[in-house]
Simulated scan of single mutants.
Amino acid sequence: MKVLSYLAFLLVFMSCQSQTKELSLNAKPSKAIAVFASGCFWCTEHVFEAVYGVDEAVSGYTGGTIKNPTYHQVGTNQTGHAEAVAVFYDPKKVSFTQLVDAFFASQDPTTPNQQGPDVGSSYRSIAFYGNLGEKKIIEDKIKALTLAKVFNNPIVTEVKPISAFYEAEAYHQDYVKNNPNQGYVKGVSIPRFNKFVKTYKGKLK
């Protein structure tokens, strides 16, 4: 009976571990998409969903090579993936440049493979681009922040082309909104968001 119970548990566990899927990055008519990684995706998602013109931010994994990675696999820092968000937005209301501003205003881009208390390559800072124009916007922003000496240390944010994006497990979506009293949310996500609100110069919802 114990063997059967263990096998049943294993099957359920394996099923739960394979609930990710590749997210289509084909934007809807009149909409656009941007992808950013800046530490825990609970925090990053909450930030971008507060920006005016953003319809939705989806938590997921990207930047690596393994298909359909799970949260556990990405957390081992062996997949090459980073926790990230796919931001669906209306370019008539908010520009890619403004989203890049929000990206840098909501994190410390000078800490390699780390954001706050979260350490590992899955928490590294990455700004993804869909075309050369977006790449230039990101690189120009990094140069401007460097010249203005906004940060005490060099910016280590990676600038990479958008690649396959895997939507994270359902319980990660809107995590801060759905779990306001969770310890990490209260101790890390909310303070980070409040700091962003004070720093970001763009329009919020």
Rank of each mutant, 00 (worst) to 15 (best):
Met1Asn: 05
Ala8Met: 15
Phe9Thr: 05
Phe9Met: 13
Phe13Leu: 15
Phe13Gly: 00
Ser15Cys: 15
Cys16Gln: 15
Cys16His: 13
Ser18Gly: 05
Gln19Asn: 12
Thr20Glu: 01
Thr20Ala: 04
Leu23Ile: 03
Ser24His: 03
Leu25Phe: 03
Leu25Ser: 05
Ser30Ala: 14
Lys31Gly: 02
Ile33Pro: 03
Ala34Arg: 03
Ala34Phe: 01
Ala34Asp: 02
Ala34Pro: 00
Phe36Met: 15
Phe36Asn: 07
Ala37Asp: 10
Ala37Trp: 03
Ala37Lys: 02
Thr44Lys: 01
His46Trp: 10
Val47Trp: 10
Phe48Glu: 01
Phe48Lys: 12
Val51Gly: 07
Val51Thr: 09
Gly53Leu: 06
Asp55Asn: 08
Glu56His: 09
Glu56Gly: 02
Val58Glu: 06
Gly63Cys: 04
Gly63Lys: 00
Ile66Phe: 07
Lys67Tyr: 00
Thr70Trp: 06
Tyr71Arg: 09
His72Pro: 00
Asn77Gln: 04
Gln78Arg: 11
Thr79Arg: 02
Ala82Ile: 00
Ala82Pro: 00
Ala84Trp: 12
Ala84Phe: 09
Ala86Phe: 15
Phe88Thr: 06
Phe88Ser: 14
Phe88Leu: 10
Tyr89Arg: 04
Asp90Arg: 11
Val94Ala: 05
Phe96Ala: 03
Phe96Ile: 09
Thr97Phe: 13
Gln98Asn: 14
Val100His: 09
Gln107Met: 15
Thr110Phe: 10
Thr110Leu: 10
Gly116Leu: 06
Ser121Ala: 14
Ser121Glu: 13
Tyr123Gly: 01
Ser125Pro: 00
Ile126His: 01
Ala127Gly: 08
Phe128Gly: 00
Tyr129Trp: 12
Gly130Ser: 09
Gly133Lys: 12
Glu139Ala: 07
Lys141Asn: 01
Ile142Thr: 09
Ile142Leu: 11
Ala144His: 04
Leu145Tyr: 10
Leu145Ile: 11
Leu147Glu: 12
Leu147Tyr: 02
Val150Ser: 13
Asn153Phe: 13
Pro154Ala: 04
Pro154Arg: 00
Glu158Cys: 01
Lys160Phe: 00
Ser163Ile: 04
Phe165Ser: 02
Tyr166Cys: 07
Glu167Val: 09
Tyr175Lys: 06
Tyr175Ala: 05
Lys177Met: 08
Lys177Tyr: 10
Asn178Leu: 15
Gln182Gly: 12
Val185Asn: 07
Ser189His: 01
Pro191Tyr: 11
Asn194Ser: 10
Lys195Tyr: 11
Phe196Lys: 03
Tyr200Trp: 07
Tyr200Met: 01
Lys201Leu: 09
Leu204Phe: 05
Lys205Cys: 05
